[in-house]
Design a protein around this nucleic acid. Structure first.
Lengths: 227, 227
DNA sequence: GTCTATACACAGATAGAC
DNA sequence: GTCTATCTGTGTATAGAC
């Protein structure tokens, strides 16, 4: 699977995320019409990413957001109860998306090696498709409340286990070498994260997402595959 | 080399950093006595790390810092011209420390494999010894001015080149496989960074810095060593 | 649903006594 | 060198007109 094929398989877009946010948070937002809400949520999220990419979420003021979206302060506050809650909503939505997608790609493959490849690539490709969401989730996790941060740790452990389970299974089947599978899973996650945390570097070096993900897999397979 | 041996070889401490900051910034700080300055800079840096670890540098107010250090607002401002400058000073100092140390450990080894091992481990061990500095440098780089951020990119590229040069040299000598050495260097850096970015995870899983660094080396050697 | 105007808390920074 | 007191700008959030 390469990135192009991934995008054919996986057709979700920013619009779908905004719609999901609207449906989940109807209780707290004063907007009732779906179409209006989705349009403006798209604008709000795009503005948040654009502003906080450079100076961080804390340093982004509501006035910044108002200016960038073209919406007034009053209008913004009818989409979310407060700045902290907006952050929490976005983080929660991002986590749900990742969890769902990885499960989907994991289930589509039974053999350990094929499953490992699919899960690793799906994660990298998903982070390419929704890059701002991934970067944001990582960098702004600290600004969450304790409960929110627990959820961050929880998904980190969940995706680690998804990988280590595959490694253990492959080990039992004789496809993979034995070793510290938890640590190997951590290394895989570290390499995946590199793609969206240091995107400027790969743009500059003209390394495509396909080249990058192939290299990750080469390293992982070089280390994991039984002789 | 393990972490214990590293600490015997490399005896720098927080005190040395504070002294270096004092000496380099005598032009901008109103404090003249070295001993006073070093003592209080130690307090200031420790407080900055403690506060900004949870909520980020932007969200830390000067009043927070005053409370944590036990120094008044007025006193703080005689150690640095402003909050932004304090950040810049800390980031600059951290970069100088990393650059110097890696060079030292690189030069101490001539053979590509020995040099690769030394540089990789030195970086991980250094990040363990000065963990708050490393975490802070990464997470708060965004809050720097354009010029400051250029410096961040510059050291990222510098350490990447340090690694890729070793790989190229070993490739020529027939010790390492050929391949995309730049990308491999990126992967190594990603794994190293993992150690200080997700320290909570390794504390929880009771994985020591020696175990971690050995695993990184195993993966790298498994991929790089010629048959 | 969206706007303008505004409340009020808290930020960074400085002056000047000690 | 360090303190207290204070200036001034900006932050989040809300009320109420349209």
């Amino acid at each position: 699977m390469n990135y192009k094929e991934f995008k054919k398989l996986y057709t979700a877009s920013d619009n779908d995320i905004s719609r999901a946010v609207f449906l989940k948070n109807q209780g707290v937002m004063r907007i009732k019409k779906e179409k209006t809400a989705v349009t403006n949520l798209n604008k709000i999220f795009a503005a948040v990413f654009s502003i906080s990419y450079n100076k961080g979420y804390q340093a982004m003021s509501m006035r910044d957001l108002s200016l960038k979206t073209g919406m007034s302060l009053g209008a913004l506050y009818s989409y979310f109860p407060g700045k902290d809650e907006l952050l929490a909503i976005m983080q929660t939505q991002a986590r749900a998306m990742v969890k769902g997608t990885l499960k989907e790609f994991s289930n589509a493959n039974q053999e350990p090696l094929a499953r490992l490849r699919a899960v690793i690539k799906a994660h990298i490709f998903l982070s390419e498709l929704f890059r701002p969401w991934f970067y944001f989730t990582f960098m702004e996790a600290r600004n969450l409340t304790t409960k929110g941060f627990e959820a961050v740790k929880s998904i980190e452990e969940h995706t680690q286990k998804l990988l280590s389970d595959i490694l253990v299974r492959g080990d039992e089947k004789g496809v993979f070498k034995s070793g510290n599978h938890e640590l190997t899973a951590c290394m895989i996650k570290a390499m995946q994260q590199e793609w969206y945390l240091k995107r400027w570097k790969y743009t500059k070096q003209k390394i495509s997402v396909d080249k990058f993900s192939d290299h990750v897999l080469e390293m992982v397979e070089g280390f994991c595959l039984a002789d």
